[in-house]
Amino acid sequence: MNDASRHKLITDLLRETPFASVRDLQVRLGVSPATIRRDIDKLHETGRAKKVYGGISAFEVGGRLAARPYDENRDIAVEAKRAIAQKAASLVRDGDSIIVHAGSTCFQLGVLLARRNLRIYTNSMPLAAYLGEHGSCHLSLSGGELYREPGIIHDPASGAPDYFASRFFVGTQGIDSQGLLESHPLLVKAIGELSTCADEVVLLADSRKFSIQPRNLALTLSRVGTIVTDDGLSDANAKMLENAGVTILIADVGGVI
């Protein structure tokens, strides 16, 4: 197979999935890791895809991944996020093993659970740092490289962790009838992997997220057991969730402590 044929196969693959690791491509194309890395470099140089740690990703429209940096996102809708976190914390029992994903609402949940008798697994660098300094829970961390824009620790080649939880608490950049939507390809990959490690997926999302429509599907609504949101949820979106079998919990933003 020549270079042009491999490059076409790689770009075709990126229309179906937002990220492919070197290992994924090596297996699919039957060539050496060195050849795959040269292909990735060439596709990056020509602007057909983006070279990222561990592999290659599709470009967003305009050539930019549009996920909002964690430091910027944490200061938006803070009261709603804290209220959602308080409501979500009531679902957790002492002795539980849970997964808390990266993101600002999930961070608020982690703060509330820091000194509970729990096992918490997280891929969030900000949350890991907080729990290490202020928490007494049993803490397990994702391994890999630090990605500062989404604030996660991730190894694209490692797959799902060897950890099982009763609940996976996850946020999202946007929501539609398909499910959870993200711009950053590593978040898509991480959410998909971690969702296989828990009995129930609990989505923490303020009502703004229903008006945000990134292009990449991270998780279908059918995989979500419960959503914790605020009272800005519209009737139409509530019906969409109910039709998908998702339990809706509304947080009292006015009652946040």
Rank of each mutant, 00 (worst) to 15 (best):
L204C: 04
I153A: 13
A160M: 03
H134Y: 13
A49Y: 01
D75S: 09
V22P: 06
I248R: 10
H184Y: 13
E60C: 10
L180Y: 11
N73M: 08
K50C: 09
A58C: 01
P214D: 10
T46K: 04
D235F: 10
S222F: 04
A85T: 01
H44R: 06
V224Q: 05
T17P: 06
S104I: 00
Q178T: 07
E200Q: 14
R37M: 08
Q213T: 12
I99V: 15
A205T: 13
S177C: 09
E72F: 04
Y121N: 02
T172S: 12
D162Q: 08
E45N: 09
L181V: 00
G254M: 00
K51V: 00
V202Y: 06
L203S: 08
S158E: 14
A66N: 10
L219P: 00
I153E: 04
I76P: 02
A4I: 10
N2T: 07
S136P: 04
G54Y: 02
S104W: 00
P126F: 01
V188M: 07
F164W: 15
G63S: 02
D39H: 10
L203Y: 12
T105E: 14
R82A: 03
V202S: 14
I152E: 01
L29N: 11
A218T: 10
D199Y: 15
N243S: 13
G62A: 08
V52W: 01
G171A: 09
R74Y: 04
E200C: 04
S32L: 06
G54F: 06
D176W: 13
V201Q: 08
V61N: 13
I250R: 15
E242V: 05
F168Q: 04
R68T: 13
V27R: 14
A20L: 10
L13H: 08
T35E: 03
V201C: 10
T220E: 15
V188E: 03
E200I: 05
V246Y: 04
G174T: 04
N237A: 07
G171I: 01
Y163M: 00
V224S: 00
R64C: 01
E145N: 14
L112N: 02
K51R: 11
S222W: 08
A165I: 12
L194V: 11
P126L: 02
A80K: 05
H184I: 07
S211K: 13
G30P: 13
P69L: 02
A80H: 00
T220K: 13
G54L: 05
A49S: 09
A114I: 10
T247C: 13
V170P: 05
L112P: 02
E182A: 11
M240W: 15
A102H: 11
V78K: 00
S211T: 12
G132A: 13
I250P: 01
V201W: 12
A83K: 00
G95N: 13
S211N: 12
A244Y: 04
S136R: 15
G63H: 00
G254L: 02
L127V: 11
V246F: 07
S124G: 00
F168T: 04
A218G: 10
L112T: 03
M1H: 12
S5H: 08
D96M: 11
S140P: 07
T196A: 14
R74H: 06
Y121M: 07
A114K: 09
V256S: 02
A205F: 12
H134E: 15
I56F: 12
A80Y: 00
L13W: 15
S5M: 10
A4N: 07
R167T: 06
A77E: 03
L233M: 04
H44F: 03
A129N: 12
D12P: 08
T11D: 08
Y53F: 15
A4D: 13
Y121W: 14
